[in-house]
Design a protein around this nucleic acid. Structure first.
Lengths: 163, 163
DNA sequence: CCTGAAATCCACTATTG
DNA sequence: CAATAGTGGATTTCAGG
């Protein structure tokens, strides 16, 4: 709870607006949260400083710029040794095609979001993973057909329907 | 190919920079892509107009603001009828906890990214999906343990190692 | 499609409450 | 902590090549 006490309704509103429109001017943002520009700017800088805002990103329609195949890969490991995971994470970090990597609980260990040009490209990456000595046991891949709802920010407050 | 012809190296650079830092000033952006501020701004507006940039989003460390459990849910349907998919998509659209929904090929039909408060909250959503008359057959859920690499933009050019 | 100038608007700081 | 006001600098429009 230590952080939540330092955040008030106004900060939440700021985060909500910036999640939806990161390029809004500080003045317009100040208007929307009913604050003077200077007070608003100070809060934004504080939120950045506390790393509650960790970046601002343009969302690009990559499929309209280059040929892309988006793969959701479920990766399971033979053993759960930290060493293997660590080296795998390093490989992920330096591999630009892997745009997102999550450790998950369940039947598999990692869920990757990978952006490749085509199936041949994906095969190459799969080989790198299987033969990189990371202890990868199995990779199950699914291909994105259609983005029905794309990420536009987190719900910063629990839904009213929730407990 | 019709769109790719209308995009040059400078546009790509602009997209690349804005993917990483959407709040960069137009002047700094112009510097980075070796253009005058006015020319740069015009290109950005055009990229927005052509919907190659579809939004600007702040990335918020939601786990430091509220209690969250992030679920990756794989949903499969009894039948693949467009009507059921459509009504399911509508439910997804109005359900704020579902922050991302992908139609995929493979063993299951949808992959959802869901943000809930706790397991009880997730159970409620599962029930809504199973009993909403959408024809949902099975839901497999996995819980996010750790975000090892978080999304920071697409590779806008194919990797040199590819084909 | 660019540059460069001019006008408007905004970010940021200092000051004060 | 917030508001206000001032100034340096940025955004945006427009003329011209």
């Amino acid at each position: 709870m230590s952080l939540k006490d330092t955040i008030d309704r106004t900060d939440l509103k700021i985060l909500q607006v910036l999640q939806q429109d990161a390029r809004i001017s500080n003045q317009a943002l100040a208007d929307r949260v009913a604050l003077s520009p200077s007070a608003c700017l100070r809060r934004v800088r504080e939120l950045e400083g506390k790393r509650l805002i960790t970046g601002y990103h343009a969302h690009v329609a990559v499929d309209r710029i280059r040929a892309v195949t988006i793969v959701l890969a479920q990766v399971s490991f033979e053993r759960h040794s930290p060493g293997h995971f660590g080296r795998f994470d390093q490989w992920v970090a330096r591999t630009g095609e892997v745009v997102e990597s999550w450790r998950v609980s369940g039947q598999y260990d990692y869920m990757l979001r990978v952006v490749v040009t085509d199936l041949h490209d994906w095969k190459r990456l799969m080989l790198e993973m299987m033969e990189g000595g990371f202890g990868v046991e199995k990779i199950t891949s699914n291909f994105l057909m259609d983005e029905m709802k794309s990420f536009g920010g987190y719900p910063l407050a629990p839904s009213p329907a929730a407990g």
